[in-house]
Nucleic acid binder design. Structure first.
Length: 189
DNA sequence: TAAAACTAAAAGG
DNA sequence: CCTTTTAGTTTTA
């Protein structure tokens, strides 16, 4: 796939959840990093470009174009699968990588808790560190970090804010109690 | 070493 | 039921 070296890209798109951004960057010979940016700020978008790495148009890259289409369909409620192969997981610290992989195994329509994810990666006391790892998730949505909630059903945090987290979960059919907590009926792990 | 998208327990409404 | 406080944890910058 002929593509220029070290290029990066960023673009905005309108979705049912508002204007979101998609950032894209080549991190190596054939390794790319792509992500959904729930709160696209001008600074965040421009951080993906520099004088030495001009922004390329999204549609110039077939993989990123496809990712953009899938994100769009996802945000319209369609159950779509994402290709983890385009993510630069190797650039993440080991623990975070394990957490992100565990997170990716949570099916649509299910949630898990920070605690149970910690258990699943062999660090049963590290619930808080799981939260930290997910807070730094470079690939929101593609790695569905919105499916991690607190042990008591409380939403926990989200880069795009709790309202967006809730909207994403509702999009996936997750049920909420009147208290605002998730009903813990379908908990993965 | 401090900070963080956590958790559990305790205290007081 | 709710809230705040406190303490115990692990990983990362």
């Amino acid at each position: 796939m002929a593509r220029s070296d070290g290029s990066q890209g960023a673009f905005l798109t309108e979705t049912p959840l508002g204007t979101v951004g998609l950032l894209w960057r080549e991190t190596g010979a054939d390794r790319r990093s792509s992500g959904f940016c729930p709160r696209p700020s001008p600074e965040r978008l421009s951080s993906g470009s520099s004088a030495t790495s001009p922004i390329r148009k999204l549609r110039d890259s077939p993989e990123v174009a496809e990712l953009g289409r899938r994100i769009d369909r996802f945000l319209h409620g369609e159950p779509v699968a994402f290709d983890l192969g385009i993510l630069a997981l190797a650039d993440c610290p080991g623990f975070q990588r394990e957490v992100l992989l565990a997170e990716s195994r949570i099916p649509r329509g299910w949630v898990s808790t920070y605690e149970r994810i910690a258990q699943s990666v062999g660090a049963p006391r590290a619930a808080r560190a799981v939260g930290t790892a997910l807070a730094q998730n470079p690939f929101p949505l593609v790695v569905p970090c919105h499916r991690a909630i607190r042990a008591d059903g409380d939403l926990g945090g989200f880069q795009g804010g709790r309202a967006m987290k809730r909207a994403l979960l509702e999009l996936e059919g997750i049920r909420f109690a009147a208290s605002g907590k998730v009903t813990l009926e379908k908990v993965w792990y």
